[in-house]
Structures are given as C-alpha cells and as structure tokens.
Design a protein around this nucleic acid. Sequence first.
DNA 1: AATCACGATGGAAAGGGTTGCATAGATTCC
DNA 2: GGAATCTATGCAACCCTTTCCATCGTGATT
Lengths: 338, 338
Amino acid sequence: MAITIRDVAVRAGVSPATASRALTGTGSVDPATAARVRDAARELGYERNPWASSLRGGTTRKLAMIVPDLMNPFFAELVRSAQAYAHELGYLVLVAETDDDAAAELELLRSMADRVDGSLICTPQTAEAAQGRLVDEGPAVFLHRMSRLVPYVISDVTLGVRLAVENLVALGHRRIAYLDGPAESWSAGLRREAVAVVGAEFPDIDLVTVGQVRARFEGGVAGGDLVIASGATAVLAYNDVVALGLLHRLARRGLRVPDDISIVGFDDVPAAAMSSPALTTVAQPLAESARAGVDMLVALARGEKPAQRAVVLAPTLVVRESTAPPAPQPAQASRGAA
Amino acid sequence: MAITIRDVAVRAGVSPATASRALTGTGSVDPATAARVRDAARELGYERNPWASSLRGGTTRKLAMIVPDLMNPFFAELVRSAQAYAHELGYLVLVAETDDDAAAELELLRSMADRVDGSLICTPQTAEAAQGRLVDEGPAVFLHRMSRLVPYVISDVTLGVRLAVENLVALGHRRIAYLDGPAESWSAGLRREAVAVVGAEFPDIDLVTVGQVRARFEGGVAGGDLVIASGATAVLAYNDVVALGLLHRLARRGLRVPDDISIVGFDDVPAAAMSSPALTTVAQPLAESARAGVDMLVALARGEKPAQRAVVLAPTLVVRESTAPPAPQPAQASRGAA
DNA sequence: AATCACGATGGAAAGGGTTGCATAGATTCC
DNA sequence: GGAATCTATGCAACCCTTTCCATCGTGATT
C-alpha cells in the first residue's frame, strides 16, 4: 500500500487537511509547518495520488492534448515539448489522436472535458462552427490554428514565406514557384495567402503558384513535373514532406538540386536534415509554441485572464544544401549562348 | 456538473451499486436490469469518471508506456499503435519519455507504478540489474527488448538480417559490409550477433563488419568512408537513420546508389521511403508488437497468466530503390580494362 | 414442507485527497 | 483594554465509483 497524505500528516504532527494545504500551497499555513510537512513528505517518499486529488478538487492538474497524427514529427515534437513543459508546471498531459477525423475530435474532447483542466487543440481541421460548442467544454487553446473564439498560438507564416523568398532572391532567383498544398486544408489556405502577400512585396519577382497537391510524399512527386514545367529556378514547397517528394521526382527527371533548381521546405521535420541534399527549410518554433500554449491554458484553467488572446511566434530559415544561386543561363541556354 | 452513476441508477430504478455492476460487467446482475441500466446511461450520455473509478477499484484501466524518445518515428509508431489498441480495450495510455536517461527511467516508473495497471517499457537501455527491482513495481512488459525476468515482445532480428543478406546475395553481391551501431547499445549487440549468425549461414560470402558508429545521421556520415574503404558492393546499416547518413556521405564521395553500391537499412522509418533513392529496409512489425505487448500487459494486469512469456514477431524486407545488382567490375575496372 | 444454495439487489464503507466551516490564538485598532 | 480582524489549524463532509456484506426471493433438494 502506498504512502498517503495521512501518513505524512502523522509524521509532521498535523492534520491531513493542513498537510494537503501545505503541499498544494493553497490556503494559509505557517511557513514552519509547511516546511515540516514537506520534509515529512520527502522522507517518506510520498507522492500525491493524482486520481484521488482530481476527485474532490475542481482541478485535476491534467491537460488534454489533441493531435491529428502522432507519426507526423511536427505533432510529435509539439506533444513532446508540451508534455515536458506541463510536467514542470505539475500538470499531466493526456494525448489523444483524431486520425484526421474531425467528427471524432469533438466527441473525444467532450469525453475528456470534465476530466481535465483544459485542452490543447492542435487539429487544423476544426470547423469554425464547431468552435462555438468547443468553448462550452471548458478552457481550450489552439496550437497552430487561428480562431476568433479560442485563444491561440501560431507562428507567423507570412514571415516564414518572406524569409524563404528573401533568401532565394538574394541568391539571384527571379522566377520562384510555390507548390501549393491541398485546397481544403485550412493551413494550406493560410500559407497560400502568405505567398500572395509576399509576392506583392517583391513586384519584380515572378512568384507563381503551381499544383495543389496532397500534403504527402506522393504529392511532392506529382508536383515535380508541374514545377519543371513552370520554368522556375527555385521552389517553395508546401511543407517538408512535399519537398522531399519533389526532390525525389526532380532527381528522377535528371535535375540536380541545388545546381539546376533550388528547393525550400516548410516545418523542418527531422527527415529534412537527413535527405541528400539536406533540405533548406522554414523552421517553426514548435517547442516555444507548445510552451506558450501550455502557459496560456494553465492560466485559463486557473481562472486568470491570459496575458494575451493570441501569441504569434517567429519562424526561422534553416539554410542547408538544397538552395544555391541559379545556373547562369538556366532555360535560355538554348537561345543565344552555346 | 457532469452526470454520475447515481443519475443513471435513479433513471434505471436501481441502486448505484447495481448500476456499477451492470456497467462494468462484474458481479451478477439480471440481464434485463443490465439492459435497462445501459439504456439509461446511453440516454443520459453518462461517461464513467476515470479518476473516481481508479480510486476504489484496485484497477485503474490505465497503462504507462515508457519510451526513450518520442521524436524517433520508431517509438512514435509504437506509441500510436499501443494507444489505439489499448483504447479499444478500454485502457488509457500515459506516455512518458526518458530522454535516453536510464536513471530517470526507474524513477519515472516508480512514480507511476501505483497509478496504473501496468507498464509497457520500450527502453532498450534498462540495465539487467534494474530489472529485478522493476518487477516489484507491478506488471510490466518489455517491447523490443529481451529479458529473463520480464515478459517481452521482440522481432526476430536474425531473420531480419537474413532477409537482407539473402536479397543482396540473390542480386549477386559477394562482399557485404555491416555498418555497426554503438558498442554500448544492447540492441546493437543483438544485431551484431545476428550478423554473425547469418554470416555463418553464407560461408562463401564476405560479411565484414565495419564501424561502430553513433545511431544517428552523423554516425552514418562517418561510416560512409569506412564502407568505401571496405571494398564491399553492398552495405547493411545498423538502422535507417544511419543508412540515410551513409547515403548522404556516399553521394558526396561521388558514388551512386544503387549503381555503385547497394544500401539496406533497418526499421523502415517514414524517412526511409522519402529519401532519394528510397531506402530498401527491414521493416519491424511495430503495430503488431505494440498490440501483442498491450495484450500481454492487460492479461497480466487482470491477473491472468499470459499465454506466453515472450512473443517473437517476424520482420519483413521492404525493397525500394537503394539495392540493385553490383556493377559488373566494381573496383577492378582500373586493372585490366581501359 | 422445511432447508439449502444461489442469483439479484441494496446499504454502506472505502479509497485518498480537498475544502467549507468552526475555532483558538495572535494581532490590530479605537 | 476590549472588540474586531486575521491567521493557522482541525473536523468532517464530500468527490464518484467500486465492493464487501447482508438481505430477500426463488427454485432445488431431501
């Protein structure tokens, strides 16, 4: 049988109530008493039973986290960071996967809502309509998803696109393709918008959108042919996985990266660093966003007003091997020279 | 306030005790009554409060799962599969990460042991000595780790190596390098042994071990030069991540894969399918092993004797683009010809 | 027909921690 | 100096579910 708070109380010579107050930090206890209780707890190796404390207290010190796909390193990193940081704050994170099933999401959320202090939602799919019902289910924060109703943490996609384009322009590229993601994806829409904004900032650069491919390796493979046809000397891909598919297809078509064409990805997944050539990519500040999200959620759960309703973080450009200056006379070689 | 079992009991016209029995399926209750209770629960949208039921019942319907690194797709897949399957069985999986810190592992385990029905341990590091203390902490099953004390699920590494070597031999390779993993790693030791066994099965093949590199991308990069020096026409890499590093280095050294040299990886991580060329690799049956592990653990937790003390699963070879017949005259080209 | 065994059910305790309320002592204020 | 305020603490109720134990029929056994 495990050590209970009663054992600690006896050892410290106080009542269980006082021991509880001393250990949770709620209510007022004499500092000396509190220290005695903490010592007793340490000496006995006491650990609070999280299930029991969830029972009476309105608070459970648990957070739910909902992601579409744990295999996706983007979400894996998000989960990992959130879990680590929440643990520091004394919270347990329960992770649930929706498998990209938007219907399952609300269901899942409802079933956990009473059992946790708040939910961290990382599913870019949630329909705008569902968000209204979502706020009824208790505190929630969106991660990498904007909302009018729910506080959120997001990275500045426009800045990310700008960093990538700036870099390519500095290398000397004048015609840049954007290989677009799936039409129905909210996050692809956001990125598409960002490309439009950045395109307007560089009036003398051709920023052409091609594709709308699946956000998968095969999508990139399919996009490869579109990119070649576009005549661009550089591509910004919807994300890293698409970029890797692209890389694969371009190699098959006999183009060398970065000599013949430059590629920039998005997200900086681990595989991006391990491809040949290694992928230049826009890194999202995942760990920071997870921390920020947990911070907001915990504040909300405690009934405090969070400092801000939205947090926007800055992505960074990781330059590796897939970008270089364009070939001197890429397509024009057949015209004057030779 | 959420709906409690009391509400359900009232609606079904029974006592909470009977309602509990009807819903959990324990004890004996009249089938008609049970149906009435289930109906009432459904109509009210009742969901059992997991924290409360953990409290009294000796059983928590929760499992702990301990992995070294969630970012590693190998473990991510394991977690995902375990979680999905456990959920079908009505169990919640709490995931904890050790960050490759063996000391943290036992600590972590101890702190969870009282709060869960059992632990699924996927950390190949656990010292043999620690395993004794581990069994005191309640039911546990090892995943991809053998043990004399603890039931385990593992895949047949020797078979995996044999599949890879068989395939390379069939392609015509006669000198094959094995790029070894870290000396101190238990799982590398296992693989090394398997290579020795398979080497003995093919007496007319040179199966040479090179390296002992870190199980990271950089390890593969470093190993590349060793592999080239070995004069082998094909390499079996410690795992996929190492194989990707190898691929990168070989490309840099001007060798074409698979024309000049064939590469086989191990694990079939997602990145293996997305490299150029895509990696031929030995796929471990992760989903199956997770299911088998959960099955064993749940049986153990229920006090049943598990059907078997160890489950050995068969890996498969996924042939992609990184393997091909050796070049006609690989290194001898400079001798007689030209 | 009386006894037994057993299935179905309810009452109540238990599980471990938190919290409302009451109280005692210390402090402050007029 | 007495009343009011505040702090520290304990008692007991409470959170929700499960389970032990007792009870009550009912059908079977002798």
